[in-house]
Design a protein around this nucleic acid. Structure first.
Lengths: 218, 218
DNA sequence: ATAATAATTTAGACAAGACTAAAAATATAT
DNA sequence: ATATATTTTTAGTCTTGTCTAAATTATTAT
């Protein structure tokens, strides 16, 4: 039995582990989870005792195969529930995280598989992040910057990296929102500015703008 | 904020309160929740402090209006999730309780309402129990004993009150299972035995049998 | 009415998970 | 190489919810 708290730690280690570092540090986990380093140390001992993590005092932690699988399952559940909330219920992109954070802890393997089938075995969640399969295998991210696309590409806006009021106001003015379809019309080579089509209107955007908009290819 | 544990106690008091007794006793709650009376006492103080229950030492407990509403919401969520599991995913009648027991604690009013709409605002769960509306109002139970029906009535089997191996084997032999449609053909007055039609076959059952099968009218 | 029985509460302990403050280990800078 | 700063761990405390055993209150039987 893996407790709710243990699952949250496993998930945090899993995510931090993906972002490069070999051994995840105590402080990194504490910051990610908005908790104290001492609490993290306590839990790392517990996870180590349960053979879910390889923990060496002062040296950081990594997941065992068993821990990696448990973490991937939590991530799988989280992302499947997000798809459910957006596609089947009337939730928007930005409302689903807190609820999925709760739903990811529901224990029932059959439920996960049935939900997966009900949703048509989606490969990515509404944010473009890949959904691990039942064996913990995970595809690659579907989330790129608008700047990386080329003329004739079609995509959908799934997020922003700069969420300042100014930038959001700019997007609002030009009718770019979450879920908005965008077509790349042309791209200048000298300054990498782009002409895009949004809601049938043409719009010229600078590299700074296109580099702050996350999209997934349509 | 109502904790998970508090919600479970509220639900228990809510259910026991329906079954007649004015004030619910400590022991009744302990038995229902498979816990110790001393734990119940601790919790009753907490619920009383939070204005969710009217608790008088040695005299039992009842819910306040606020507590009744909170309890009804938990029951509402439980039963809506049961409908979801049976109608949308491929769960059968008897697999859903434990999962709904977890799902009922997910906190999001919007989720409840959207789920309700997605399911077409069902009035009863797969066991025939009524689903409280968002104001905590609840209809009447849809679950009666087969024995209470009369010739020409049509119904669907939704449960049994005697779940001994012998009885289940008897039902199995006569192809009566959860979800089976049953039509009442005739009823003897002297011993209240019945002739019923199951899967196009006629079958004679005693009062003892018909009084152990829960059905809902079709 | 009082003794016996049953129900309930109190007192004290425990486990999980979190925190603060202090100590120990590691990393960094001169 | 040593002093300083940072990171991590330890020790001890707190909260929630649980338990056992003992004490108290209510109920029942004579």
């Amino acid at each position: 039995m893996v407790t709710l708290s243990e699952e949250n730690y496993l998930k945090a280690i899993y995510h931090l582990g993906k972002q490069g570092m070999l051994a995840v540090t105590t402080n990194a986990i504490a910051e990610q989870m908005d908790t104290k380093a001492s609490s993290v140390t306590d839990m790392l001992k517990k996870l180590s005792d349960k053979n879910l993590a390889n923990y060496v005092k002062y040296q950081g932690v990594s997941l065992t195969e068993e821990g990696r699988l448990a973490a991937a399952l939590v991530v799988r559940k989280h992302r499947l529930w997000e798809v459910f909330l957006v596609e089947k219920l009337q939730f928007s992109w930005d409302e689903v995280h807190d609820i999925a954070e709760q739903l990811e802890h529901i224990k029932s393997l059959k439920l996960v598989d049935e939900l997966d089938a009900f949703l048509g075995c989606p490969t990515h969640d509404p944010h473009g992040d890949p959904i691990p399969d039942k064996h913990g295998n995970i595809g690659k991210m579907n989330k790129i910057f608008l700047a990386q696309l080329n003329p004739n590409d079609h995509c959908i806006c799934i997020g922003v990296s700069d969420s300042s009021a100014d930038f959001l106001k700019y997007l609002d003015k030009h009718q770019i929102a979450l879920g908005t379809s965008i077509e790349i019309i042309s791209k200048e080579t000298f300054d990498e500015s782009m002409t895009i089509k949004v809601n049938n209107a043409l719009l010229n955007i600078s590299k700074i703008v296109s580099n702050n908009i996350y999209v997934k290819k349509a």
